[in-house]
């Protein structure tokens, strides 16, 4: 691990157009790649995730219907599907932002919403949830950066207040992460003064600073102006290729999904319609609904 990584502001580049980025070959910047992985703690083992019979309702609307789904440790799973199909809800259930009505969720072999007491599975205490939740972090569509904190404080806040690092250690970790996502010159800026792409990179650094074993990305480029998508995808690609973290990504960037996904899951109506390796889902989809969806999305592009 480099003790004092020199700042490198030109990568990932802001200047290349999104289209170029998306059609770029996956052999993208190698030097940054390793540095990001190192900064993010690439030795960390990813955890597996297992949803069993998870049901989530909003009033009369059943958004997740007895969902069974497994994610292997270190797997990069891409979730696609039409709007309103429940993709966000899956990630939010895993992040404990929505409590499911039925079913269990396991992370790294541990129950998230339940704990074992006297040989029985009972509703987990807040303490237990927090302990399991440590393994997970999430990046949001709308960034949700803390507007009253500088970029550096946004990233160092979690390590300091949650992981118990000293101020210096936390700042050092935050600085390292911001450097490798290309924001070495933005430490002191408040989010209001950053572009969308910069905000989202801060948000990624903030999540990485918690050294999660599972990272959730919910359409993290959808709120960005097209020319800023590339810089964020670069960082994600780097993470996907050079870390052993488990990643669940919801995205509409099909080229990107094909490039980095170990597996693509097509979602509709709260159920898995079809899943498989990207080559199969994009090259030879079996289900009519998948074909319709892909045609609709690709036509738009």
């Amino acid at each position: 691990m480099p003790d004092n990584p020199e700042p490198n502001h030109d990568e990932p580049s802001n200047s290349r157009s999104a289209i170029l980025e998306r059609s770029a070959e996956p052999d993208a910047p190698a030097r940054t790649a390793s540095r990001l992985a190192v900064a993010a703690g690439d030795e960390l083992e990813g955890s597996g995730v297992r949803f069993s019979g998870v049901t989530k309702r909003f009033g009369d609307l059943t958004v997740l219907d007895q969902l069974d789904m497994e994610v292997a440790p270190g797997e990069k799973m891409v979730i696609i599907g039409p709007s309103g199909s429940g993709k966000t809800t899956i990630l939010r259930v895993l992040m404990t932002l929505e409590r499911p009505e039925a079913g269990t969720v396991e992370v790294g072999g541990e129950q998230l919403y339940h704990e074992e007491r006297n040989g029985q599975l009972v509703k987990a205490s807040e303490k237990h949830v927090r302990q399991v939740r440590r393994k997970i972090s999430m990046v949001f569509q709308h960034f949700n950066l803390f507007p009253h904190m500088t970029a550096l404080d946004n990233v160092s806040f979690g390590p300091r207040k949650v992981l118990g690092l000293s101020k210096d250690e936390a700042n050092e970790r935050a600085a390292r992460l911001l450097e490798v996502v290309g924001l070495g010159d933005k430490f002191g800026e408040h989010p209001a003064r950053l572009s969308g792409g910069q905000k989202q990179r801060v948000a990624i650094a903030r999540a990485l600073a918690m050294e999660p074993e599972v990272m959730l990305f919910d359409e993290v480029t959808s709120a960005l102006d097209p020319e800023l998508v590339g810089e964020v995808l670069n960082v994600l690609r780097d993470l996907a290729e050079n870390t052993t973290m488990t990643m669940l990504l919801v995205t509409h960037e099909m080229g990107f999904a094909r490039e980095i996904g170990d597996r693509v899951v097509m979602f509709d109506g709260g159920r898995v319609v079809e899943q498989g390796p990207p080559t199969q889902i994009f090259g030879d989809p079996q289900e009519q609904r998948t074909r319709d969806f892909l045609r609709a999305v690709l036509d738009r592009e």
Partner: peptide, 30 residues
């Protein structure tokens, strides 16, 4: 204070007390 702020704090595993103290209240104070 937007709901996303609470959610981001949960995603960082911040305790509910610290959430109020460091994230929500300082923004609400303004």
């Amino acid at each position: 204070v937007p709901r996303g702020q609470t959610e981001a704090a949960i995603a960082l595993n911040v305790t509910s007390f610290d959430r109020m103290r460091y994230i929500i209240f300082p923004q609400a104070a303004v």
